[in-house]
């Protein structure tokens, strides 16, 4: 009985060690996903949506399209309170449905700039993505990594065009693009 236990213990120790080495790369991605998810929640406090953009259910809809590390963590914030509204997480929506989302995250993996343009035509949705060059395509907030830290770039012109007001406090920490447009 004691021998079996020792073997089992050795096996467990080996597995943990192997995982921890491999996990280094994976950990970094995972932490980024968590930050991205939390930032989505923080945006809601520093961006103002027109009152008309909320549906009658009075939920604050955060939508996620595509495969992303966010998915792992986003459910933690479902049900949280934002400006008197309950957060609802909706995944993989069509372009037509996008106008019901206050925030729409589009994964870099499933990115398609045509879709973006179509969505931008209609509604007051804050579009966020980790796709490089997303802002140039008209997206409002783009996640990017510098010095191994997750940063935020904001396209003020696009936001304004779609009726969204972004707080100066958020702007202070962000890289700002298209202020003149």
């Amino acid at each position: 009985m004691k021998q079996i236990n020792r073997k089992l213990f050795a096996l467990l120790l080996g597995t943990v060690f192997t995982f921890s080495v491999c996990a280094n790369e994976q950990d970094a991605l995972d932490r980024q996903g968590k930050f991205m998810a939390v930032y989505l929640l923080h945006f809601s406090n520093f961006v103002e949506w027109p009152e008309s953009s909320f549906n009658e259910k009075n939920n604050f809809n955060i939508c996620i399209n595509g495969i992303t590390e966010i998915n792992k963590h986003i459910n933690d914030i479902e049900g949280d309170d934002v400006k008197g509204r309950k957060i609802k997480i909706i995944k993989n929506i069509t372009n037509e449905e996008a106008k019901n989302c206050q925030i729409l995250f589009i994964s870099r993996i499933d990115y398609d700039s045509k879709n973006i343009k179509q969505i931008l035509l209609d509604g007051n949705t804050l579009l966020v993505s980790d796709m490089e060059g997303f802002i140039s395509d008209g997206g409002m907030i783009e996640y990017f990594v510098r010095d191994n830290k997750l940063r935020v770039a904001i396209n003020i012109g696009s936001a304004k065009k779609n009726g969204l007001k972004i707080s100066s406090k958020l702007l202070r920490i962000a890289k700002i693009v298209g202020a003149d447009k």
Partner: peptide, 14 residues
């Protein structure tokens, strides 16, 4: 008053 967003978005530079 100014530091809250920096903390929230982990922005040490700011």
């Amino acid at each position: 008053d100014n530091i809250s967003t920096a903390i929230l978005f982990n922005d040490y530079d700011s």
